[in-house]
């Protein structure tokens, strides 16, 4: 214990930190994202990645997918605090290693290299549904979909093959089977 003279208590032991995917259905209205993100920053929660888009034009609903980390207590707070926001309809909470849920991120990778290297690059991503979106004599843009860590690995591996730029989305999630989250 240092000789800090703060007016507040010292933190107690931290619990185990887990990664969770929080899915939030919100009214697609001005500043709704800022409310959600402001809640996270204001209360000191983490955001590892964020994906948001309108999913229901008729009912004007957007779906926000947030990857976050925290102790079980913090995760519970995140869900409960989100539910209090006026434009929030429902909140889903999935553990990162939940087998019943599919998580995917997408990346666009630009390779600037000769034909041979581009081929090798493509080969290196073959496990992750590579699609060539654009190709010239000396460049290619490859789209892959995979998990966060896999994309981390691929981008690292592609460096020698001429990867010059990577653009990535946040994770999106969907439950397996016929079940729908309510």
């Amino acid at each position: 214990m240092t000789k800090s003279k703060s007016a507040y208590s010292t933190p107690s032991k931290l619990g185990k930190i887990d990664t969770h995917i929080i899915v939030v259905w919100v009214d697609n209205e001005a500043s709704v994202l800022s409310r959600v993100v402001g809640l996270f920053s204001g209360r000191g929660y983490n955001i590892e990645s964020l994906a948001v888009a309108e999913v229901d034009q008729k009912n004007n609903l957007s779906r926000i997918t947030i990857v976050t980390t925290g102790t079980p207590q913090v995760i519970e707070q995140i869900v409960l605090q989100l539910k209090k926001l006026v434009p929030v309809h429902k909140v889903g909470n999935f553990k990162r290693d939940d087998k019943k849920v599919i998580f995917k991120e997408m990346a666009l990778l630009k390779i600037v290299a000769n034909h041979g290297k581009i081929k090798k690059a493509l080969n290196a991503c073959k496990k992750y549904n590579p699609v060539i979106l654009d190709q010239t004599n000396k460049s290619a843009v490859i789209q892959i979909t995979a998990l966060r860590r896999e994309i981390d690995k691929v981008t690292k591996n592609l460096k020698p093959f001429g990867l010059v730029s990577a653009s990535r989305t946040g994770a999106v999630a969907m439950t397996r089977g016929a079940e729908v989250f309510n």
Binding site: Y8, S9, S12, Q73, E76, Q77, L80, Q81, K83, K84
Partner: peptide, 29 residues
């Protein structure tokens, strides 16, 4: 509130605790 509990680790150590509140996010916070 932190002005109420004092040191959390030693807060009311022997009790069963019941919390009645209208705000679900107050529970277990």
């Amino acid at each position: 509130d932190d002005r109420i509990t004092g040191k959390i680790d030693e807060f009311s150590p022997k009790s069963k605790k019941v919390h009645i509140d209208i705000d679900p996010s107050s529970i277990n916070k």
